[in-house]
Every structure is written in C-alpha cells, then in structure tokens.
Simulated assay, not measured.
Amino acid sequence: MIEDMDRRTLLSGVAVIGAATLVGCSGGSKGGDGRVATSSSTPPPATDVPSPTATPTAGTPTIAGTVATGLNVPWGIAFLAGGDALVSQRDAGTIVRVATDGSVTELGEVPGSAGRAGGEGGLLGLAVDPDDQSVLFAYVTTATDDRVVRMSLDGDTLGRPRDILTGIPVGARHHGGRLVFGPDGTLFVSTGDAGDGSLALDRDSLAGKILRIDRDGAAADGNPFGNRTWSYGHRNIEGLAFDADGRLWATEFGDKSADELNLIERGGNYGWPGVEGKGGGKGLVDPLVTWGTDEASPAGLAITRSTAYIGALQGECLFAVPLDGERAGAPTAHFAGDHGRIRSIAVAPDGALWVTTSNTDGRGDPGTDDDRILRVTI
C-alpha cells in the first residue's frame, strides 16, 4: 500500500450546493475495506450536499475518556439495558462484555468464525433482541459463507449459535456485516458484494444488499420483492442506523470515486456496480453525502440528536453530518488523525457515543493500548 507523506493532514473541500464547508480528515495508506489508497495531486471530488434548514441540536463531540483498551478489532456493539455492552472482536472471533467501569469479560468464541488480520471478515455485527435481552444475533464470516446466527445469553454465558440465515456469498472482501433492529421489530442486515459487483444487482442474491428478515431468518412480511431483499445495488455497507423518525441510513464504501451516506428506500436500487456517487440517472437512488475515496472509508454509523456520526477508517476521524428530515448537511471531521482508524459508533444508554478504533486490523499502526473504545460526549 502507498504511504501518504503526511497522514495527519486535514483535507477540506467545498460543498457545491449551499454555502456549507466540508471538513475532511487525513488518510494514510491503510485503505478502507476492499480498497487500496493511492496518492494523487488531483483534489478529491467535492461533497455534494444540501444545506439543512434546521440548526443541529448536537454539541461539539468531546473525548470524555477511554472505556476499554487491549481489544482485537472491536466491530459490533450491542448495549444491554444496564449500560454494559456486548462487543465482537473480529479476528479473534470472540464476544466480550464491556462494563461501564471499563472491565472486560470474555463470554466465548463463536465457532467457525474465519477472521484474519488484514482481511475484512470474521465476527462482525451484533444485535440484542429488543424484546428479549437474553437473545443475541451475530453476523459471522465462515470458510464457506457469511451468515447470521442467534445465541442465548445467560449472564456471562453464551449459548451455542443457531444458524438462521446461511449462504450469503463470501469472498476475500466486502462482507457488509452490520445488524440493526427496525422500529417494527424486524432485523436489517447489510451484506457486501463479495467482490462480485454483478451480485449486487441480482435481487435474488443475498450479496450487495440490505436484507430485512424476521427472528428466524425468513423474509419479513412486506418486503418489496417477496424475498429477503430490502434494497440492492450496494458495494459494501458497514454502517446502518435508524433516525428518530424511523428512517434507515447507511454508509457505503466506494471503489475509485465516491464513498457514500445513503437514505435507504424500500426497494431502492443504489446503482453499484454501474454507478458510484451521484448522477446515476432514472430509477437509481443517489447518495445524500459523498466523499472522495481517499478521505473517508465510512464504516460504523450512529444517529442521535439529529446528527449522523460516522467512523472513518482511512480518514481516521469521526464525521458528524447534520440531518434535517430527509436532508443531510455537510460533514465535519473531529479528532482527525488523533486515534488512528475509527470503525464503529454506538449510542450508549446515557446518550454518549462509544467509538472503537481499528488499528489492530492489519491495516493500521497499533499503539500499546489498541484497540480501544473511546467515550465521546456531544
């Protein structure tokens, strides 16, 4: 991979709609999942976003402290009612409980997880059943497929995983992996294209999609095509989150021109592999925010207080994007280059953000305490 001369340089661009200023953040050579960064004298494409009509209610993000250290690629975060969180360790294939006092307890391995340093798969997203906190769902890469499993949770004891959705195409890259429950109690699953873009446009394939399933893995009632597909034409989505009004948003890794923040429509075609970024044309859904692919690699996503918070792997920062209904404002970068690669973001029960670093993933420069979970107040 090609090293940038100064991986802590703050990039900036100008939005072409409205007068808002886009603040980007530095990118080293440690490219986002499925992409190798390259240096260029040509500036990245300007972000094309509308200005919001309402003032965001969130304050300036501030690092309030470090919750936990010494973790292995912390990827999925699922909070329990008492404030503790279950966290997946991608390459180790284990789930740990991280208490509010920072203590870390390993609950066990998920059998068959095939994570490795420098790769993208392994033990990825987690979601606790909103109606029963003794039930945990996980997205896991195996040697033969990506799949969703369900486990029981009794204190610090995990039950044996039961497969509920298997056969998601697997490749060396682009696994997706995020899980989130919707307001109606169905489970939304993001999948990557497994390195084969043609699968993303095949509405019957499980790859390159956002899927909507019930707790047993079957297609949820009301899906647009009578199968598990909710939206399609996606390259690799690692961030899914609902806003306060029940709208689903997603972050997506681009290839050569544009990373994206998308508002997800039922049955929407998001254009990959034919299109990156805006301008796809009739029948395609355009992203609301784009970045040049050397400044973001947007991974985890959390939404609170009318703001989308996005972890940037190659950008090595936390982006804040103000939201106003179905509109998104210009991104602002925070903590650029201060903590290395930023992967996952989750809103804790106390309203703070838990932000994970991803420096032990084989593409970062780990410090002695990596990987960490940072507590960010807003």
Results as ranks from 00 to 15, higher is better:
residue 171 G to V: 03
residue 115 G to W: 05
residue 174 H to V: 09
residue 135 V to F: 15
residue 87 V to E: 04
residue 120 E to C: 11
residue 129 D to R: 15
residue 170 V to M: 11
residue 154 D to S: 11
residue 87 V to A: 13
residue 94 T to Y: 15
residue 128 V to K: 02
residue 105 T to A: 13
residue 154 D to G: 04
residue 120 E to R: 15
residue 86 L to I: 09
residue 112 G to I: 12
residue 93 G to R: 01
residue 158 L to G: 12
residue 85 A to Q: 06
residue 125 G to T: 14
residue 151 M to F: 10
residue 103 S to T: 00
residue 173 R to P: 00
residue 95 I to F: 11
residue 134 S to W: 12
residue 168 I to T: 00
residue 86 L to C: 09
residue 166 T to Y: 00
residue 165 L to C: 03
residue 152 S to R: 11
residue 142 T to L: 03
residue 104 V to D: 02
residue 88 S to Q: 11
residue 152 S to E: 07
residue 169 P to D: 06
residue 116 R to I: 15
residue 118 G to N: 11
residue 114 A to R: 12
residue 111 P to M: 14
residue 115 G to Y: 10
residue 169 P to H: 07
residue 96 V to L: 03
residue 118 G to S: 05
residue 110 V to M: 01
residue 108 G to T: 11
residue 102 G to C: 12
residue 169 P to A: 00
residue 174 H to D: 02
residue 105 T to V: 10
residue 120 E to Y: 12
residue 116 R to K: 06
residue 173 R to F: 12
residue 90 R to L: 14
residue 159 G to A: 00
residue 169 P to V: 01
residue 154 D to Y: 10
residue 138 A to V: 06
residue 151 M to D: 03
residue 105 T to L: 09
residue 98 V to F: 04
residue 115 G to Q: 04
residue 137 F to M: 03
residue 130 P to A: 05
residue 96 V to I: 01
residue 119 G to C: 06
residue 123 L to P: 13
residue 110 V to Y: 00
residue 152 S to A: 08
residue 158 L to P: 14
residue 134 S to I: 04
residue 128 V to Q: 09
residue 167 G to V: 10
residue 94 T to R: 15
residue 148 V to Q: 03
residue 137 F to P: 00
residue 93 G to I: 01
residue 88 S to Y: 14
residue 162 R to M: 14
residue 112 G to K: 13
residue 87 V to M: 06
residue 166 T to C: 01
residue 150 R to P: 09
residue 173 R to N: 07
residue 124 L to R: 04
residue 121 G to C: 12
residue 102 G to Q: 05
residue 122 G to I: 05
residue 107 L to I: 05
residue 153 L to Q: 03
residue 111 P to E: 11
residue 109 E to N: 08
residue 92 A to Y: 13
residue 164 I to R: 08
residue 109 E to D: 12
residue 122 G to W: 06
residue 133 Q to M: 05
residue 91 D to A: 08
residue 109 E to F: 12
residue 107 L to C: 08
residue 88 S to G: 10
residue 145 D to C: 09
residue 149 V to T: 13
residue 113 S to F: 15
residue 96 V to R: 12
residue 93 G to M: 03
residue 99 A to P: 00
residue 85 A to D: 02
residue 160 R to T: 09
residue 157 T to Y: 11
residue 105 T to K: 10
residue 133 Q to D: 01
residue 139 Y to H: 14
residue 133 Q to T: 05
residue 112 G to D: 08
residue 148 V to M: 09
residue 112 G to C: 14
residue 117 A to Q: 10
residue 164 I to E: 10
residue 150 R to V: 15
residue 155 G to Q: 02
residue 135 V to L: 12
residue 169 P to I: 00
residue 173 R to G: 04
residue 138 A to F: 08
residue 101 D to C: 05
residue 166 T to S: 07
residue 97 R to L: 12
residue 148 V to S: 01
residue 114 A to S: 11
residue 127 A to F: 06
residue 103 S to A: 07
